[in-house]
Design a protein around this nucleic acid. Structure first.
Lengths: 243, 243
DNA sequence: TAGTGGTCTAGACCACTTC
DNA sequence: AAGTGGTCTAGACCACTAA
């Protein structure tokens, strides 16, 4: 049942991932590329594309001349930092079933770091949406989004404040979020943030300070997020790079 | 002058990066893949491989049907987290010329997190190497490596304690470091670490807790590192993933 | 020496953007 | 309609690992 869309590569990738999770293989060894290609009736290139993606996700590793192997360690990686697109999905990948609570949604003049990040003038207004993500009523992360009000194409957005930001920007600003430039910052939580997250003030936490851009590199949104380190910890595989 | 090794793809990649940094292009637009392929006398596949790597580094982005463009934001990324291999190189990429000071190198029984990470028994000995990386006498990061002593193939390693760990493991343990599994942890610096880094106790910092594995997934080393956030901040590009 | 992954080619067709 | 990047094929040869 080989069809277009999802792409062949995606189907092959899903198939191999399935094999990894169910079979386990002997010695964690995955069949040779040529064999996979023959079995699935696709070209070796397609198989290699699929394997390359699995490799970059940390699920497998390859040794020239030896073979392709399952990377048990890599399976601990729930999500690659650079692949995080919505926090809803991030939390789901970590095994949560998050609910979202909008703590605040109001317009105010941009503070100075926001104005600088978004290229605004002093006094320009931004819509501030503060969302808390919970798992079973327990706070996991807090995120504050700031969107220039001049992007808003209407006023009837109240129902969608809980939506993922890229969706909100699409629906109510007619802008398409393309990527984030993100800084990873260690902080001691201030009293306000700590209380919203249900931890003691001063608790160390990871904070993301990010700017979301559209395809033309125009900044659309500035986001600041804080995570409960005891509930959500970021892991990654570091390898010798080809660069 | 097209030769093997470095690979064609690497040469093409370097060539395009050169173009990006010097020319700047109009509208940040990069010539079409077919044109690059013709100019350089290589196949489009090779050009695409090179562009894909540049894209994953954040230097460019591609829009189907529209073209390939320079990503000015992405050029701010000094090094991808997942491509960090030695801290020497990381610091160089950030514009430092780091010097290394070995603060300690001694054998001791493994503490319990180390023993667990490396699969050791209670009381097994590890060689602990504590290194401080400085820029102009100013501490930037501190790293502690723990290597099981039973890996050591000799006793004359004293001169190489300052070497990058993968080199030390190669030369004195005959083991080849393949990858790290790394956790990103927010901490408030304890008095000892803070004083070594020259900051106040309690200063928030990023800590990496990592296990280094060889090709067979055998753990070789556990490392704990702390960074001066005011001198070295991690940035990354987050994109919608193909996964 | 046999078998594996790594690199590269030449070409086809598709999906999408732009004019 | 023209031109771009995205997907896929079939095949060649190389570099490396393992028996």
């Amino acid at each position: 049942m080989i069809t277009r869309n999802p792409s062949l590569t995606d189907q092959v990738k899903a198939h191999i991932k399935e094999l990894i999770l169910t079979d386990g293989f002997e010695d964690a060894r995955i069949p040779p590329e040529t064999e996979l290609a023959a079995d699935l009736g696709v070209s070796r290139t397609t198989v290699r594309d699929a394997l390359s993606r699995l490799q970059s996700e940390g699920a497998i590793y390859r040794r020239q001349g030896a073979g392709t192997f399952v990377n048990q360690q890599g399976l601990q990686i729930k999500s690659r930092l650079e692949d995080i697109w919505s926090y809803e999905k991030l939390l789901e990948d970590h095994g949560f079933e998050p609910s979202v609570r909008v703590l605040a949604a109001s317009k105010a003049p941009a503070d100075s770091p926001t104005a600088e990040a978004l290229g605004l003038n002093d006094g320009d207004m931004v819509l501030i949406i503060e969302k808390l993500f919970l798992e079973d009523e327990k706070p996991v992360m807090l995120t504050i989004n700031r969107i220039p009000t001049h992007f808003l194409s209407g006023t009837d957005y109240a129902d969608d404040e809980a939506a993922p930001i890229y969706e909100f920007l699409q629906d109510h600003c007619d802008r398409s979020l393309s990527y984030y430039l993100s800084e990873i910052i260690p902080v001691a939580l201030d009293a306000d943030t700590a209380s919203k997250l249900g931890v003691d003030p001063g608790t160390p936490a990871i904070s993301f300070d990010e700017i979301g851009f559209d395809q033309s590199n125009e900044p659309l949104v500035r986001a600041t997020s804080h995570f409960r380190d005891d509930l959500l910890r970021f892991r990654l595989i570091r390898k010798r790079s080809g660069a």
